[in-house]
Write a protein that binds this DNA or RNA. Structure first.
Length: 199
DNA sequence: CACTCGATCAGCG
DNA sequence: CGCTGATCGAGTG
C-alpha cells in the first residue's frame, strides 16, 4: 500500500530536478586518511565522499569548484557562498572529530532533498547513535516502526550520502558481526575501532 | 505494473 | 557452519 515517495524534490514546482539538482559547491577536507569531498546545496551538506586514493591529492581543481548559482556578482550567490563556507567549517570539525573517535559537536544542516521518507527515517535514526554505540539492521528497522524492513534498512544505509557523519558504520549485523559497508569494510572496522568497539 | 536485487535474519540440519 | 524462506524498499524497463 504505502508506496515510497520522494520528498522535497522540486519536481512539481517547475524547477528542474536533475541528478545534481541543488548541488552548488564541492569543497575538500584534508585529513590523515586522505582528502574527503563535501557537496553543498543551497540548504546544506548534501554529500560526503571518502578519499579516492590513500593519502593522495585525489581531486583535481584543488577541490574547489564553483557551479551554477554561485556567481559572486549575484548578491544571492554571495549569500549562498557565505552560508556554505560557514557550514563547511562545521562539517570539517565534525568529520575530524568522528575520525578521531569522538562525537561531533555539531553538524551542518543536512540536505536530503530527493531522498525517500524511508531512507530519511533510517538516517535520522542513525544520527541518534553516539561514538561506539552500535545497533543491528533489525534494531533500526524496529526503531522506525517497520520491524520487518530489515533488508531495506541495509539498503538505506548503503545509499547514505553522508557517511561518517551519518554513522552508518555503527550498524552491525545481528550477531555483532561486521556486516557490510559501501565505503569498504576496512574503513568500517577502522572507524569502529577508534570508537572503542571490539568485534 | 512486474520484475530483480540487497550492507538481513532466524530457523534448521 | 551453510542453506533457505520471508519480507520490504528501490531501481529498472
Amino acid at each position: 500500500m504505502n508506496r515510497s515517495f520522494k520528498i522535497g524534490s522540486n519536481r512539481s514546482a517547475g524547477h528542474r530536478p536533475g541528478p545534481t539538482a541543488g548541488r552548488l559547491l564541492k569543497l575538500t577536507i584534508p585529513t590523515r586518511e586522505g582528502i574527503f569531498l563535501a557537496h553543498y546545496s543551497e540548504t546544506g551538506l548534501a554529500g560526503l565522499d571518502f578519499p579516492k586514493a590513500k593519502g593522495r591529492t585525489a581531486f583535481k581543481n584543488g577541490g574547489r569548484r564553483s557551479e551554477v548559482g554561485m556567481s559572486v556578482n549575484d548578491p544571492a550567490g554571495r549569500l549562498r557562498q557565505k552560508n556554505i563556507l560557514r557550514w563547511h567549517r562545521t562539517t570539517t570539525a565534525a568529520l575530524k572529530a568522528v575520525l578521531a573517535g569522538r562525537a561531533a559537536k555539531n553538524l551542518p544542516p543536512l540536505d536530503w532533498t530527493g531522498k525517500t521518507e524511508f531512507q530519511q527515517a533510517v538516517w535520522r535514526e542513525l544520527l541518534k547513535l553516539g561514538p561506539g554505540e552500535t545497533k543491528s539492521y533489525g534494531e533500526i528497522a524496529e526503531a522506525i516502526g517497520k520491524p520487518k524492513a530489515v533488508r531495506a534498512v541495509g539498503g538505506a544505509c548503503g545509499t547514505n550520502p553522508i557517511p561518517v557523519l551519518v554513522p552508518c558504520h555503527r550498524i552491525l549485523a545481528a550477531n555483532k558481526k561486521i556486516g557490510g559497508f559501501s565505503g569498504g569494510l576496512e574503513r568500517k572496522r577502522s572507524l569502529l575501532k577508534r570508537e572503542g568497539v571490539n568485534l
